[in-house]
Write a protein that binds this DNA or RNA. Sequence first.
DNA 1: CGCCGAGTTGAACTGAATCAAGAAACGTGG
DNA 2: CCACGTTTCTTGATTCAGTTCAACTCGGCG
Lengths: 211, 211
Amino acid sequence: MDNGGYDWKRLSAIEMTTAMNELLQDHIAQHVSLDSAELQLVEAALEQRTLKKNDYLLSEGQVCNYEYFVIKGGLRQYEVDPNGREIIIHFGFENWWITDKQSLYSQRPSIYYIEALEETDVLRISREDLAGLSVKIPRLERYFHNVLQQSSVIWQTKILYLQKPAEQRYRMFREMYGSIEQRISQQHVAAYLGITRETLSRIKSQLLKRQ
Amino acid sequence: MDNGGYDWKRLSAIEMTTAMNELLQDHIAQHVSLDSAELQLVEAALEQRTLKKNDYLLSEGQVCNYEYFVIKGGLRQYEVDPNGREIIIHFGFENWWITDKQSLYSQRPSIYYIEALEETDVLRISREDLAGLSVKIPRLERYFHNVLQQSSVIWQTKILYLQKPAEQRYRMFREMYGSIEQRISQQHVAAYLGITRETLSRIKSQLLKRQ
DNA sequence: CGCCGAGTTGAACTGAATCAAGAAACGTGG
DNA sequence: CCACGTTTCTTGATTCAGTTCAACTCGGCG
């Protein structure tokens, strides 16, 4: 029940050297190298917020104007379909960017919610600032392109396994998200896999019996 | 039964001003404006080929080294699963880029086939040339970023509707691909939607009866 | 202690797959 | 232009994976 915004803080306004920004800087450095003047430009565009469990970063009907970077914690992006069922299309954990690209690029109201699964620290950067930075720092565009490429591969993989039986979907999920599986409740895993929690429960118990 | 390559022609080696290249130039111009020297650099990196129906642009096991741009015609990208069933994850028609990003970025063998649905003219550009051009023409990176953003939105939409019942999937398909539906055989539509051709046939006849 | 959300398990139900057989549509060669 | 085989599409009967509904267990947390 929080539409976000009022408790965002400009990163550059926080007194101490922020450990948060360093995490993003490390992530950028894995793709392109920026000098300190450039990093400062990036930092000036960032805002930070800590979400409590079940806080929303985005709600249905809002226009999404930001890209979000997860410093610590976890998020889920989901749609509520006409029958009230939640369809999770994406998770966001440490070092992942998350946003509703559909709304961001089209500037139309989102159909998604983005909600914290646990206490979560995020950075955000606005569409406008990102466009401005891309002009000033062309290499930054390469960074965001690489990030987008990575998520594209994940999307593509997901499209493939959504067309396979429930057990195989769960196996692929474990391969891709195994390390964070225990941080996601089973009903959220099920909603991500497009199956009911009952089915997932049965699959898990079968797998245990067989090994 | 063709692994591609031997009949690709460097675009710059073709005598006349190529109508093909113009189509790509138009597409680029919709996103960024390049001067004629830059366009010439792009052209120099392009190769062209005409595929006959059922020719392959990529086969399972090959490493994908190119991005392909469809000038005319249509392609399907699909996986053959262990039971021999084909899962189509993407179509490519006029003015679309298509490739196996997974293989391209990881340089590992592809699990996909990319096959012509009809006689199809394509351009290709190699990974290396693309990287080179991105350095020489930073704005080109924006173009490819925009293209990737567009396809990300399509994939995200597809992930959403793969979790809904067959009839809704077909409706969304008509919304997105309505204009080219008649160029795709019903079994390929079904393989794209993750349903059998029998089910699709029944859905279509039901929809007709109801309207 | 009792409540509440999360997970489990069982039984009945259902949407879609499978299997099977025809009916169209399509291309090719005479 | 028709006859042919081949492929694509349709329709029906049966089966099955996964949903739904319902009851019950478990583990926190106020």
